[in-house]
Simulated scan of single mutants.
Amino acid sequence: TQLQDDEIEAYAASGGHVVHCPESNLKLASGFCPVARLLAAGINVALGTDGAASNNDLDMLGEMQTAALLGKGVAGNTEALPATQVLEMATINGARALGLEADIGSLTPGKAADITAIDLQSIETQPVFDPVSQIVYSAGREQVSHVWVNGELLLSDGELTRINVNRLMADTGSWQDKLQQQS
């Protein structure tokens, strides 16, 4: 968030990647990432949520919306960070940052079948003129209907398929009690 122009140039020359976590930056008041300048310099910028302690919700759809809006404000340019670019930051650019772009990050034959289905038929996402724009600016995690990881269905009609939610909530409550007792 504090990079100067010469530092951006040097970092671009190094081939490094940046993981942008806008909601964490906002919560921690750590500054504003110059995403448009980083991208213009040729730096691969991925999108992240940071850890639960500095973000709370770990919601990638919310992160995409925040990144898109904040990126325009920081750049002072309504055309900075268009929806397609933000979606790429959340998908293929993240895979690139991890060195896994040959395996994940896009729907391509031979790659892992990691897919998130988002239901854009709710009133909050209507009307739909540009699905990518609707996903970035209007959809929320409540519109995620299905998730497949490496072809395995993990969320079906909004219900987890491999995790017992009641047990998870009980375990969470137990850990919360233990942590409160230690503080």
Rank of each mutant, 00 (worst) to 15 (best):
T1Q: 12
L3E: 06
Q4C: 07
E7K: 14
I8R: 06
I8N: 05
A12Y: 05
S14T: 10
G15A: 02
C21T: 06
C21G: 01
E23M: 09
E23I: 14
L28K: 07
A29H: 04
S30H: 03
F32A: 10
A36K: 02
R37E: 02
R37G: 07
L38N: 03
A40E: 13
V45L: 01
A46D: 01
A46C: 03
T49F: 04
L61E: 00
G62L: 09
G62Q: 11
G62D: 07
E63R: 13
T66V: 15
T66W: 06
T66F: 12
L69E: 09
G71N: 04
G73Q: 04
G76L: 07
G76W: 03
A80M: 03
A83G: 03
V86A: 00
E88W: 12
E88I: 11
R96T: 06
A97I: 11
L98V: 03
I104S: 03
S106I: 09
L107A: 03
L107M: 03
P109Q: 01
G110C: 01
K111S: 00
A112L: 15
A112H: 14
A113S: 05
T116F: 00
A117Y: 06
Q121L: 13
Q121W: 11
S122D: 14
V128H: 07
P131Q: 06
Q134I: 10
V136N: 08
Y137Q: 03
S138Y: 14
H146S: 11
H146N: 15
W148R: 09
W148Y: 15
S156T: 09
D157A: 15
E159C: 13
L160N: 00
T161C: 05
R162M: 13
R162F: 14
R162G: 13
I163N: 11
N164D: 13
N164M: 06
N166E: 14
M169E: 09
D171F: 07
T172W: 04
S183L: 12
